[in-house]
Amino acid sequence: MSMATFRPILIAGGLVVALMIAGELVSPGFASPEQILRLSIVAALLGIVAAGQNLVILGGREGIDLSVGGVISLSALVAGNVMNGLDAGLLPAILACVAVGAIFGLLNGLGVTLLRIPPLVMTLGMLGVLQGLLVVARNGIPSGRAAPMLSDFVSQPQWLGLPGILWLWALIGLAMAGLLGRTVFGQRIFAIGANEPAARLAGVPTRLTRTMLYVLSGVFSAIAGLCILGYSGSSFANVGGQYMLSSIIAVVLGGTPLSGGRGGYTGTMIGALLLVVLQGLLTTLSIEESGRQIIFGSALIVLLLFYGRSSGMRV
């Protein structure tokens, strides 16, 4: 890992620790094991969404997935109705979720590669479609419940005192590191992100690779939707809405620039943690919502400014 990708990880990691200490000083108990566990679960939910967002952004050419929130909400709705509170329905629900994520991801991918629609427009349009579908499907009434097994998986200590979702997140972290660092597909993601025409001349199937990124993003969002359903117990309207912006911010905080071509998922995981800890701290300080948003936004801008400075000039 080069210094350029490592530096944001150090900064973000250092800030997580600093914020935890600050939180503990201001409000004793902020850094208690239970609180850390709770924040980690929230970070895991965001981190899973950000994994897909990360891939799409790494692929460059203005790659971005604004439809993650819609996929999350639809996935949670579908899963809740398929399992309807029964453990027996868990496996079909998982399969249904993955299918939902893959289908909408594929549509995004094909729109971007074959129809050459800018990702911003394509995925924003898809978000609109998904929100419309949600309204129709729900008919205004909340429906669907999480299976007990799923709720336990997300919030109850299971192996070594940690809930299953943290193990899942760790597994995704390892899988992403392996994918990006050790596979040809991973190398092709960086190649199309860094210079697509050159990648094409070097034998990279650029359209297939890019389409796959959107499919994976859809699948990650769908998995996150399932877990969020487990976290909240039932699917409520627009449960995924907040994840659009925060997943992008987690990626950028983790050292993957929006221009793509460099970065990685390890940083994104730290970025997700940082984001969640910062939100947690602002909530603990019981600052009003408006003030919280102002501080949050300013902190992000300052942090990103810091990154921009650190990238250095090429001579």
Binding site: G181, T183, V184, R188, A194, A198, R262
Partner: peptide, 29 residues
């Protein structure tokens, strides 16, 4: 525009043709 996969390593700029021709899945550094 058509040669260097800019910002990536020398290694990553040399191997893509080989990886493509050998239909490799993993990159064995």
């Amino acid at each position: 525009s058509d040669g260097a996969i800019s910002g990536r390593s020398i290694f990553e700029n040399v191997v893509p043709i080989h990886l493509f021709k050998t239909r490799a899945f993993f990159v064995n550094h």
